[in-house]
Amino acid sequence: MSTETLSGAAELRAQLHGLPGVDRVGAEERAARLATRSIKTTAKAAAIDLAISMVDLTTLEGADTAGKVRALCAKAAHPDPADASVPRVAAVCVYSDLVGVAVRALEGTGIGVASVATSFPSGRAPLEAKLADTRAAVAAGAAEIDMVIDRGAFLSGDYTKVFEEIVAVKETCGDAHLKVILETGELATLDNVRRASWLAMRAGADFIKTSTGKVSPAATLPVTLVMLEAVRDFRAATGRQVGVKPAGGIRTTKDAIKYLVLVNETAGPDWLTPEWFRLGASSVLNDLLMQRRKLATGVYSGPDYFTLD
């Protein structure tokens, strides 16, 4: 290892450890306070449509088939077949071997295909394997790559390894956007979440994403608050804007709207578009559609009237 890399590593560590600590109680209190905002009538209708357009419709099961992915793509393009005014979702998120199926199914809709890569969800594979996974997804037409960081290396303090992996994957991505999954459920503290956010952004992430959805707890409001503060501060420091994607555990319209309030009050309205904020979820879409129909018809709707995913 050259002296230059060594001094780079020391500088990285110094920066990450020089970040101000997160007041956990304060973050939870702030997130809880913002979650009590009451969003009603026309504001609620606008928030529901915005939330639908931010959804990364996701299926990440071992049992996924080409048929299931095609069904999901049809839903992504027309979330409510009975109502053409419903906006389409932001992207469809699948495993890398199903990217080709999703790309063909979404041709002409303008919806991007996101692919998890780098041996999702654990990230425990040799770097060459992770890069091959990424290359395959990009070659199949993925517009966005969701990579996982090496939490083991991060927690044992080997920031350089994590940093270099992200840089290598970013290079492999080419034009595809890179979302970096921090898996905050395994990072233990909000201080670590802040450090991992900065680490990922410095390494070139276009988006930082809370979780894989395979570890509990997945996305929570305090964690997302810390990440939103990080992207805000990062833009102030460097001028580069980075997106945020909470994923996992967002099931109801109420949850989704809480996140939108959090974005608006923390990072600001600049982030309040599908380009800079996404919701990684699948079940929330049906609840958003049910609420939308309730607002339109004045009658509570039921899950029987929407697709099963």
Partner: peptide, 8 residues
């Protein structure tokens, strides 16, 4: 509300 509810 209950008579209207689509899930009843």
């Amino acid at each position: 509300w209950l008579a209207d509810h689509m899930d009843v």
